[in-house]
Simulated scan of single mutants.
Amino acid sequence: MKRLITVVGVFVCLFLFFVSSRVYADALKIGLMGPMTGPWASEGQEMKQVLDIMVDEINAAGGVNGQKVELIVEDDGGDPRTAALAAQKLVTQGIVGVIGTYGSSVTEATQNIYNEAKVIQIANGSTAIRLTEKGLKYFFRTCPRDDEQARVAVKTIKDMGFKKVAILHDNTTYAKGLADEARGLLEKEQGIEIVFFDALTPGEQDYTAILTKLKGANPDVVFFTGYYPEAGLLLRQKKEMKWEVPFIGGDATNNPDLVKIAGADAAAGFYFLSAPLPKDLPGEEAKAFLAKFSEKYGNPPNSIYAVLAGDGFRVLIKAIQETKSTDPDVLADYLHNKLKDFPGLTGTISFNEKGDRVGEVYRVYKVNEKGEFILMP
Rank of each mutant, 00 (worst) to 15 (best):
F223Y: 15
S104Q: 07
I120M: 10
D56E: 15
G310K: 04
K134M: 10
I30A: 01
L331Y: 07
F272Y: 12
V19G: 00
L345G: 04
V98Q: 04
N65Q: 11
M47H: 13
M241P: 09
W40P: 00
G283E: 14
Q121I: 07
V73S: 01
D329M: 01
Q93C: 04
G226Y: 01
I304A: 12
H169F: 00
A83D: 10
T92K: 14
G97V: 12
L178A: 05
K48M: 02
D265G: 03
P219T: 08
A286R: 05
C13W: 10
K239F: 11
F197Y: 15
G44M: 01
K354D: 13
P35E: 05
D206Q: 06
M241Y: 02
P219S: 03
N171W: 00
Y365I: 10
E322M: 02
T172R: 07
P301F: 03
A128C: 09
Q205H: 02
F196C: 04
L345I: 14
D220Q: 06
A264V: 15
V55H: 03
V96N: 10
F11E: 08
L211G: 10
G283C: 01
F140M: 06
N255W: 00
E148T: 14
G97Q: 08
N59P: 14
L375R: 09
G44P: 03
T212K: 09
Y102V: 04
A175W: 05
A150M: 06
E204N: 12
G347Y: 07
D280M: 06
G359E: 10
K134N: 10
V73F: 00
S303F: 05
G269H: 06
L281I: 13
G44R: 01
A332C: 11
E74D: 09
K137C: 02
F373N: 11
Q49M: 13
A175Y: 05
F351Q: 09
L273S: 14
G310A: 08
P377I: 04
Y102T: 04
P80D: 04
V154Y: 08
A86M: 07
K163L: 04
E193H: 05
Y362F: 15
V91M: 05
A175Q: 08
A86V: 08
S42G: 04
D79T: 06
D356A: 02
L85W: 00
P300D: 03
G97K: 05
A27E: 13
K155M: 04
L258M: 11
L339V: 14
Y334K: 05
